[in-house]
């Protein structure tokens, strides 16, 4: 049925090859980093592509995981991601549901109030002063509360809720169900795809956030993983020894393998969940793409 001319066959080979090269270029930085993180100091200094480590050593990971900052940073990042995502989902549902119902008084002005925050904001200094004035400096709440509701999540959730037939809510109301019951028993169970998408994007953005932690968190014990990674990446070998990150008497090391191992520790949770959630990830791009 499908007839291919010679030109088309040549094009197909060319197309598939170029895309393969593009994919390799997308992957290579990760391959290199993983390979470096697993290399011994001598292997890391060898010139070459480092597609895989010829001399495997776990020393870098031992040093990184022996660093108490990395361990507490990891725990703080997990804490902000899990609790932040749970709170976002809860309050986004709560806010989006009434806005999805046409009979809500002042629905138009309220929607505008929320939408306007997408295109205008006070900026860094006023936000910093707010966090300072409500006493959240150096608290994990400073990282969770300001992200709890975003206009974008509320609008996405509201649009999804609107696609659920209103007759369901109306008949439940006649049966005497309260609004919160209608939301919890009818709307939320029907909204699993959008909950998964919003939840995933929120979780990823919490894990990746570093700027707010850099501004608001002042003590190392409350600091998140991304900030420690940021510090380690710009450190030289001398600084690493001074910071007590490595003990030069015990091991030979190069800063590159330590940096690479820290990157891997930070990336790993993301890459492990990626295959399972990428379906929702693509959905999120569709939702966020043009309407961002």
């Amino acid at each position: 049925m499908i007839q291919r001319t010679r030109g088309e066959r040549i094009f197909n080979v060319f197309n598939v090859t170029v895309l393969g090269v593009v994919a390799l270029m997308a992957l290579y930085p990760f391959v290199y980093t993983i390979s470096m993180s697993l290399s011994s100091a001598a292997e890391a200094m060898r010139s070459g592509l480092h597609l895989y480590p010829r001399d495997i050593s776990l020393t870098s990971f031992e040093m990184v995981l022996a660093n108490p900052d990395i361990v507490s940073g990891f725990a703080n990042s997990v804490l902000r991601t899990v609790s932040g995502t749970a709170l976002t989902l809860f309050f986004t549902c709560l806010t989006a549901y009434p806005l999805a119902r046409k009979e809500l008084p002042y629905r138009g002005p309220l929607l505008f109030l929320i939408l306007f925050t997408m295109i205008f904001s006070g900026g860094i200094v006023p936000n910093y002063l707010l966090i300072k004035n409500i006493g959240l400096i150096d608290s994990i709440w400073a990282l969770i509360l300001p992200h709890m509701l975003t206009a974008f999540n509320v609008i996405v959730m509201k649009n999804f809720f609107q696609s659920i037939p209103e007759s369901l809510a109306e008949s439940a109301k006649i049966d005497g169900a309260s609004e919160i019951n209608i939301l919890a028993r009818i709307y939320v169970p029907l909204s699993k795809p959008v909950l998964a998408t919003v939840g995933l994007w929120t979780a990823v953005s919490h894990w990746n956030q570093w700027f707010d932690a850099m501004l608001y968190i002042t003590s190392d014990e409350n600091q998140v993983l991304q900030t420690f990674l940021q510090r380690i990446v710009i450190e030289s070998s001398v600084e690493m020894i001074e910071q007590g990150l490595v003990d030069p008497n015990v091991t030979q090391f190069t800063p590159e393998t330590i940096k690479a191992a820290t990157v891997v520790v930070t990336v790993l949770p993301m890459l492990l969940i990626y295959p399972f959630v990428q379906k929702y990830f693509v959905k999120g791009i569709m939702l966020g793409g043009v309407k961002e």
Partner: peptide, 8 residues
């Protein structure tokens, strides 16, 4: 509905 939207 109003009670639900108020916190947001």
């Amino acid at each position: 509905l109003l009670v639900l939207v108020l916190p947001g």
